[in-house]
């Protein structure tokens, strides 16, 4: 169980063994949260920079907490207060930061491929905290961790993802990770958000909500980006909510133990009704707690040694 890699760009490149190794490590970190001291000293003296070129609250706080609970030194950078405004390129910004001797960079960026680009030009480890519509691997890992806590082995389990699949990095990371673990993924939403070509990723495409949820073990409901309404992706919040919103009524048509997830932030009464969001079938706050543990696991495993040393016998 080792991560023989410098960076985490997406779940697309991870093997089943690597994903399971991250999830097992994340469970060990999760148990640390119940101790009187919720941090461990393993990353003392390592420096992590959080580079956020796009606004983010939950992911940034979650990464920060993960780093602090590993006792790493951290620096936060957000685009609004940076020299990007003065025209500096991503490469120059990142190389300048690396020249200050940092071990790891966590980056959120609006361009797909930005994290992979950075990983290629830097010696520091790079963790993708979301690159455009490409991937958001740590969100995928925390979602899968939450599913595994409820369902055990995910082989053959049925996961339905509902929302704007084609523009969602969360959906992509979920699909890659879940199919690698043998789960059966169904994606559901209006055809403008779920083109038939999504089937190429290994998911079943369904445009009717009732058929998409009927045999699901879990529903992962994605946030609808309201700003896309102006791009004619969907006519109105009300129409989306009527056709694809997950309500108590929709849940009655699922298996009785089917549960509900949402990566946040929620648009209440658009993609998820308030009753469902506060109801007994949701595990949304478990996802948030698991997020810190999953990020600790990724940071820890990526820092766990020089790849040249891997394969040497443990002491």
């Amino acid at each position: 169980m080792t991560l023989r890699r410098k960076d985490l760009i997406g779940l697309e490149d991870l093997s089943r063994r690597e994903i399971l190794s991250i999830l097992d490590t994340a469970e060990a970190f999760r148990s640390v949260f119940d101790r009187p001291v919720r941090s461990v000293p393993i990353m003392r003296g390592k420096t992590v920079v959080n580079l956020f070129f796009e606004p983010s609250t939950r992911t940034r706080i979650s990464f920060e907490l993960a780093e602090k609970r590993l006792s790493a030194d951290i620096v936060n950078f957000s685009a609004s207060s940076s020299s990007l405004k003065k025209g500096e390129t991503l490469r120059d910004t990142a190389q300048n930061i690396e020249a200050m001797k940092v071990d790891m960079i966590v980056m959120r960026h609006s361009s797909p491929g930005a994290a992979a680009y950075l990983a290629n030009v830097l010696d520091a480890s790079v963790i993708n905290a979301g690159d455009g519509a490409h991937e958001h691997p740590t969100q995928g890992l925390l979602d899968i961790m939450t599913m595994r806590q409820r369902l055990g082995n995910l082989e053959g389990k049925k996961v339905t993802i509902i929302g704007d699949i084609s523009h969602s990095r969360v959906a992509r990371s979920n699909i890659y990770g879940l199919t690698t673990l043998g789960a059966e993924v169904t994606v559901c939403g209006p055809p403008t958000m779920v083109p038939g070509a999504m089937a190429k990723l290994g998911a079943r495409v369904e445009h009717d909500l009732k058929s998409a949820v009927a045999d699901a073990d879990v529903l992962n409901i994605l946030r609808i980006q309201l700003e896309r309404q102006s791009q004619m992706v969907f006519p109105s919040n009300r129409e989306y909510s009527l056709l694809f919103g997950v309500t108590e009524d929709v849940l009655r048509q699922t298996k009785p133990d089917c549960f509900v997830m949402h990566p946040g932030p929620m648009n209440r009464d658009v993609e998820i009704s308030s009753e469902v969001a506060d109801g007994p079938r949701q595990v949304i706050l478990d996802q948030v707690t698991n997020g810190v543990a999953a990020r600790m696991a990724v940071i820890y495993l990526l820092s766990g040694g020089d790849p040249g040393q891997l394969g040497a016998p443990a002491a």
Partner: peptide, 22 residues
């Protein structure tokens, strides 16, 4: 108790060690 997260040799551990229950 499991000491994995308290080790002083993170950069030379090599393969991620198995983590046991505390």
């Amino acid at each position: 108790i499991d000491i994995t997260f308290y080790r002083d040799d993170l950069s030379t551990i090599g393969p991620a060690p198995r983590i046991n229950e505390t």
